[in-house]
Amino acid sequence: MLAHRFALSALALALVAPAAFAQVRPFSIAGANLQRAANGVLSLMSYSAIPDITSSSLSISSDATGNPDLLMSQFGGGFTWSRETPIYLEGAAAYSRYDPSFVASNGTETRTVPVKWTSLSGTAGIGWDFPLAEHLVLRPIFNFSLGAVASDLSIGRAFLEYKLDHDIAFLDGGVLKTYGVGGSVMLDYEAAYDTHETDIEARITNLTLHSFSDTSDAVRGQSNSTTANIWARYRAPTPWRLMDRPVRYVLECAHSEYFGDQRGALGFVRLSQVGAGIEFDSSAYDIIVTRTRLVARYVFGDNIGGMSVGLAVSF
């Protein structure tokens, strides 16, 4: 009789054990989906890591929620050391925030996991000016980039009361570290006269981003992107004067084409921009800033359009 009861108890335990195990089974996200997202965020980082005025400030919102799903901002600049030593140096720093959502499942139920990915990146370049004509130079540039994407699950954590597997563990405070190596070729035309100034740049840049260091295996990835752009600026004095110098009006236009992993990553393959503004000349005073420029720009492309305001200074 005792053996019979023991057998029944063992049978009951065997039937209950799978149910109990199912209750504590960790939620998981398909590794392939997370990997695609990691490659995707590296592609998005290319927009801010590659110097490009048309994509230096972007905010893309969800039509359904009206909340930003992607926000990117970049600032930077470059200069030639001197005519005698025509070394060209450039640098840019960028910030972006991307708000993807993942679907997690433990085999019996699924839950939506909202995440915030914040990225910081810096890109440096060194080149050399080869004169082709009086105002025209050919400028090859070597570029190097470092960046990191930090994941914040603070919003989604409230929806997950169970043990997390290693994929979701990355989403909860993980960091994806990146480095990038590439190069650019630029044609730069600069002509300054008493009545006006004209700047025109045509540039093509290729940059490959890789994850590295202790980045989680679930999100190791890479992105190879190329941007080709042309940019022009025209400045001329107005009748007004400020700080003992004429106030200038500024006209700008730019166009960029995206290739490689960038192409179509945000739903467009090209962006164009037109802008107008004013420039104040402070070179008559003994201060480090010689010019301050304020320009309003309209950016447009495939099914996208928007306004931005840029502030720039010259030294």
Rank of each mutant, 00 (worst) to 15 (best):
V247M: 03
D217Y: 13
A32G: 11
R139D: 08
L120I: 06
F102D: 10
S48C: 06
K116V: 05
S56F: 00
A169N: 13
Y249V: 03
A296E: 09
A148D: 11
D167M: 10
F130W: 10
L176D: 09
D69Q: 15
R139S: 14
Y88P: 05
N224R: 12
T208W: 10
L153Q: 04
D244N: 10
L271E: 03
G31T: 15
G147M: 04
L44A: 08
L2E: 11
T118G: 00
S225W: 06
D286E: 11
H166M: 07
A17S: 13
I53A: 12
R5Q: 09
L70Q: 08
A7N: 09
V185T: 10
I287V: 14
A218K: 08
G76W: 03
T112P: 02
T198L: 10
R5C: 00
V181K: 03
A133P: 02
R293I: 09
A7S: 10
A17W: 10
E190V: 14
A92P: 01
F79C: 08
Q262R: 10
G127F: 02
W81K: 09
T178A: 15
D69S: 14
S73D: 12
S96Y: 15
R248Y: 15
S272M: 03
T292F: 11
D281V: 01
A228M: 09
A254E: 05
L266P: 04
A104W: 07
T208K: 14
S57M: 04
L138G: 04
S9W: 13
